[in-house]
Amino acid sequence: MIPHERSLVDKYKNRPFALIGVNSDGTHQAKGLANYRKQAEKMGVTWRSFQDEGNSPRISEDWHVQGWPTLYYIDHKGIIRHKNVRDEAEMERVLEEMIAAAEQDAK
């Protein structure tokens, strides 16, 4: 999961794409944050994540997340286009389509 996401961030770095996480490692507390930083360094996680905890209710609770990871594909206009596409080739196919649409509209 993470290595592939790292490659997506790299592949689309000059295009209208963002990988945004909602992270549930308890980074609202010092211990969770320290662990997060250590792991992020090791795994090369450079993208931004919301803290899931520390919100009431938690974002994942608000979004009725029932399993991790849960994925939403949101287009440049803010519309949910796909959910939980996990196959790597399929992920890239739908993202390419969404990124191309964003580029088209930006012209």
Partner: peptide, 28 residues
């Protein structure tokens, strides 16, 4: 989504309008 990133900086999901966003609920 209105919240804080892991470094404590406030931001919103809608800040990324104009980009295709992959929103990932995850943890290590």
């Amino acid at each position: 989504i209105v919240g804080k990133d892991v470094d404590g900086v406030a931001f919103k999901l809608s800040d990324y309008r104009g980009k295709a966003v992959l929103l990932d609920f995850w943890g290590f």
